[in-house]
């Protein structure tokens, strides 16, 4: 996905929107912080997620990080290929490394997030 069209959270998730469906993933910055990823836990398709609440987790050798859902809605798809091979998360985080697709129940939630430029600035400030 073109990063210019994405929205970003302070917890380093990204969201891309097509119609009422939001695609979510984690950013390259987050993946670099975690180093070698070894595991991902995905939500069940058909379950509901809630903005700001945990919907899954990623694990590296040195850390487990919760994944916070940027938006509320129903999970319509989960990228199950990641369960066996987490490399797309680091190799192509905004493309084949997508994590879930959600049918949004409250698209207004998107207004809270950063655009790509602001997110880069936010990351720079976090890195220091």
């Amino acid at each position: 996905m073109d990063q210019g069209n994405l929205k970003f959270t302070k917890t380093h998730e990204w969201v891309g929107v097509e119609g009422e469906i939001a695609t979510m993933g984690i950013t390259d910055f987050a993946v670099n912080q975690l180093t070698d990823l070894v595991y991902i836990e995905l939500p069940e398709v058909g379950s509901n997620c809630e903005a700001g609440k945990v919907f899954g987790e990623v694990e590296s050798v040195k850390a487990v990080s919760d994944l916070y859902s940027p938006v509320s809605g129903e999970i319509t798809e989960a990228n199950t290929a990641l369960v066996d091979d987490q490399s797309p998360l680091s190799d192509d985080p905004f493309g084949t490394g997508w994590i879930t697709k959600v049918k949004m129940s409250n698209p207004a939630e998107l207004d809270l997030f950063m655009n790509a430029d602001d997110y880069r600035k936010f990351c720079e400030s976090e890195a220091h």
Binding site: E59, S60, V61, K62, A63, V64, D66
Partner: peptide
């Protein structure tokens, strides 16, 4: 193995 579950890494979680 899987030390990331344990207290010395994951602390309160």
């Amino acid at each position: 193995n899987l030390q990331a579950r344990e207290q010395h890494i994951r602390r309160d979680k």
